[in-house]
């Protein structure tokens, strides 16, 4: 649990530092005050473990990264920011869900699997993001909109399908 907390903290620290550096170098010095507040918020998280507290920090970092991209900051830096904040968010929520459980052999297994899949997510996500950044398709805007809508539709439909199948399975078993 301690290791998870430390890794989560390091990831938050990395994402906040990169954001601060990027904003500072882009000339937005006033934002440092915001980062100090975010740092304090992060300290608060360590005392007040709650879903919405952890999630709001994750949201703020993602929004700042998105703004950073629109104002022309480094894409690779923002991908790292987003990924590390995602890892930090996941680890802090996992910590909360595991809070208070005895350290038995089966719990170390869940920890092991969780770490493996999280690492897989990080490397696949960052890898795909970096590969994607090297492509430069010049599609017309309308085509992009259609592609986005199709992909979003597939995403929602897929999730709904998965949820429905698990729900119907539970009804059959009941």
């Amino acid at each position: 649990m301690k290791t998870r907390s430390i890794i989560s903290g390091i990831n938050t620290f990395i994402s906040l530092c990169i954001l601060a550096l990027e904003y500072f170098s882009a000339g937005y010095r006033w934002i440092l005050l915001g980062f100090i507040l975010l740092g304090l918020f992060w300290v608060f998280i360590n005392f007040q473990a709650d879903f919405w507290v952890s999630s709001s920090l994750f949201l703020v970092i993602v929004i700042l990264a998105a703004i950073g991209i629109t104002i022309g900051m480094s894409l690779i830096a923002m991908v790292i920011v987003c990924t590390s904040s995602l890892v930090s968010w996941e680890l802090s929520l996992f910590n909360q869900s595991m809070g208070g459980y005895p350290l038995i052999a089966t719990n170390t297994t869940i920890d092991k699997y969780h770490s493996i899949y999280l690492m897989l997510t990080v490397f696949t996500g960052m890898g795909l993001a970096l590969i994607s950044s090297s492509f430069n398709f010049q599609f017309p805007f309308g085509v992009i909109v259609i592609l986005v809508l199709i992909s979003l539709g597939c995403l929602f439909f897929g999730i709904q399908l998965v949820l429905k199948s698990t729900h119907s399975q539970s009804q059959i078993e009941d």
């Binding site: 998105a66 991209i69 987003c82 995602l86 897989l120 990080v122 996500g125 960052m126 994607s132």
Partner: peptide, 18 residues
């Protein structure tokens, strides 16, 4: 109209897909 914003959505998307 900024494709880079799509790129930073990839890590959370991979997380969801896994």
């Amino acid at each position: 109209k900024n494709g880079d914003l799509l790129i930073i959505a990839i890590p959370p998307l991979v997380y969801l897909i896994i």
